[in-house]
Amino acid sequence: MGLVSSPQQQTCRTNMSVANRSAGRNIHIYDAKDPDVVLGGLILTNGVTNANFYSMVEIFCIFDSSYFLRDEDGITIQRDDYPLHPGKYFILTNATAKNKYPGSITISNEPWLARTVSAASGTRAASFRDAVRQRDRRCVITGKEALRAEHGIWRGFEVAHIFPLAYEQHWTDSDYSRWITIPATRGGAINSVQNGMLLRDDIHTLFDGYDISVNPDDNYKVVCFGPDGEGIAGKHLDQRFLEDPCRPVDQLLRWHFRQAVFANMRGAGEPIFEYDFPPGSDVMGEITSGPKAAEWMEFELFSRLSAR
């Protein structure tokens, strides 16, 4: 059975020890005109509706005509709020306005930015960290309170950049600063409180790895792209957070959600990077022998330089 890979994936499948995002998928997506090739898939978790599924497909598939989805029993799936069920789904395109033949499906080549855990340090990051801590005082995804925050103890909690600091040049080139209305105390717009969230440390790891995201276009629903051991999939960010005028802007949450869909649903999925290097490990060797070595090295390098 064939499997479509994004252009970024086609040269990074040599390290057999690399974790595979597509492992465990129970949703598989096909072009009805070529049902032997898998276009992508999903590990289904709580809260994903039929309408959500349509919107995710539209992130990594480009259509030149209208389309609809059918399951393996031939039943057309409606864009509704009924829960999505595991199984095979086939995309059928309607005839285009120019001719009577079905339209085409193209897999998006929108870039996916490789990312590992971002634990930035330095004066720019410290200012950003303090602003986010004082605003949130809890993990905004799980709701767990930082009970010792008033004593300056934040153990178990970390501040996450929604858009990673390591890609500041990409941020600048794309003019993402236009979304920021609250300037940062230090370090430019990318370090605005509107680009950060306080998360439990384990949730931060999953967020940076695109295993968890928030969909601002579905009432800020938490979406898990892997098994949900915390019971948070399908929940929504609470109103205290959403009513705060300093909360993250929707455009950045939407950017992260799109990246999570690309990472987990497009083709075979993007590689998962190792980040746990015990003392004595050959870090450089592990990176250079792993997937997307150049991108991984670039991220690690700029994560350290950009924090100064």
Rank of each mutant, 00 (worst) to 15 (best):
A146Q: 08
Y67F: 15
T106F: 09
G47W: 02
A125C: 08
T116Q: 10
R133V: 00
G47F: 01
F53W: 07
D80L: 06
P102F: 08
C139Y: 07
R138A: 08
S55P: 04
N26Q: 04
D31M: 10
T49W: 01
R137E: 02
S121R: 11
R137A: 03
R79I: 09
G87Q: 09
S65K: 03
L44E: 11
N50L: 03
N109W: 01
L39E: 11
P111W: 06
V117A: 08
T49R: 00
V117W: 07
K144A: 14
G122P: 03
L39P: 10
S55I: 12
G41N: 14
I75L: 11
E145S: 07
N46T: 12
K88D: 14
G122F: 02
P35K: 15
I29T: 08
F63C: 09
L44C: 10
Q134S: 01
R138E: 05
Q134R: 03
Y89F: 15
V37C: 15
F53Q: 09
I91K: 02
Q78Y: 09
S127V: 06
M56N: 11
I141P: 09
G143Y: 06
P83N: 10
Y101M: 14
R25V: 00
F63S: 06
K98G: 14
N50D: 02
E58A: 15
I43G: 09
I27F: 03
T142V: 13
F90N: 04
G74L: 08
K100V: 14
V132L: 01
S65I: 03
R70H: 00
A23S: 13
N20L: 07
R79H: 08
R115H: 15
I105T: 01
D71V: 00
Y30I: 10
K88V: 13
S65H: 05
D73S: 11
S104C: 05
A131I: 01
L69W: 08
F90A: 05
I27M: 03
V38R: 15
T76S: 13
D31V: 10
A131W: 03
T45M: 01
T123G: 04
L39A: 07
D73K: 12
Y67T: 00
M56V: 13
S118N: 08
I59S: 10
G103F: 02
K100W: 13
E58K: 15
L147Q: 02
V18T: 13
S108A: 03
I62T: 14
I107K: 05
V37Y: 12
R137I: 00
D64C: 01
F68L: 03
I141L: 15
T123W: 06
V57G: 10
I75Q: 14
G103N: 10
T123P: 05
A114N: 02
T93A: 07
M56K: 10
G103P: 05
T123K: 06
G47C: 02
